[in-house]
Write a protein that binds this DNA or RNA. Structure first.
Lengths: 155, 155
DNA sequence: CACTGATACATGCAAATGCATCTAGTTTGA
DNA sequence: TCAAACTAGATGCATTTGCATGTATCAGTG
């Protein structure tokens, strides 16, 4: 180890406590959000897929791209998409440049439902987050979590 | 609405983007962590219960207290504890002051396993978090997420 | 071009999850 | 004091999840 005695272990401890706190805050917020009326018609994870598609400029995403954003196994996502497709909220298309791939796109109904739930969802989020942190603190939290995410994603 | 036009809506947007970033970073980190070899012997959620018990000064927690920390329904936690109990990692006891309640405590084997997985888990966390954020940034992230959690938990 | 290995997604099946409900213990209030 | 309302946790059952594997396509090598 480098540095004075105890330095390495306290760095490890700080990282662990930081993650623990991030994780618990996520649990606390998510618990409140998913119990709200916005998700009576559609589970949060299914909404999340609709949301991700709605944010995408091209309007289409590969399943494996979506899988990076969501905490679900590949097979679970495949079946989640089955359910969305059965409800007419999304459409599967074979990727033009890769015969193995599947492109997913929102249908009109899917887009409507996403917007409808999204409006309420966003209000719920603000109700939880705005009283907890100042705007500056929110911006800092946004910056730090984005930095963490980018670093972790890039191995 | 108060303030100049647009203020309220941009406050809502900031809160939503902050939450989104927090959530995605949690997904990215958790995905890496749970795919590591530390969780071959025990799923993350089950480890989390052992960990929570290990942190508790009295060594015992009520099921409903544990349920606040974990993103699981009451019934799922009940059965998760069944599995831990079947493996001899925890013990259920009727709460002395409330006949409805159940106190959960680690067994010796449970404590051993938690420590063993915990050591590796903590190293994995540090490997992800330390290269991503400076110590000061980690402390700030810890502070902000703890503030958020506390605010949300207190309604 | 055939062949080997890798990638993207689907599917069979066992396990985990959540909703609704049940049981039992506790608190409330008339 | 006692019935009604409430709370903690367990359980039946249908849905969701993940692991292992299957199928189809792609990429690289001789």
């Amino acid at each position: 180890m480098s540095g004075p005695a105890g330095t390495a272990s306290s760095a490890v401890r700080l990282a662990a406590e930081t993650w623990e706190s991030l994780f618990r805050s996520q649990v606390a917020v998510m618990r409140k959000l998913q119990s709200g009326p916005a998700f009576k018609t559609l589970p949060v994870k299914e909404y999340d897929v609709l949301f991700t598609l709605s944010r995408c400029p091209s309007g289409q995403l590969r399943l494996n791209e979506i899988n990076d954003k969501v905490l679900l196994s590949q097979s679970s996502l495949s079946r989640l998409v089955d359910r969305l497709e059965k409800r007419g909220l999304v459409e599967r298309t074979t990727a033009p440049d890769d015969g193995r791939g599947v492109l997913l796109a929102l249908t009109e109904a899917g887009s409507e439902l996403q917007k409808s739930i999204g409006r309420e969802h966003v209000r719920d989020i603000a109700t939880l987050v705005a009283p907890a942190l100042t705007a500056d603190e929110q911006r800092e939290l946004l910056r730090l979590t984005e930095k963490l995410r980018a670093s972790v994603a890039g191995h």
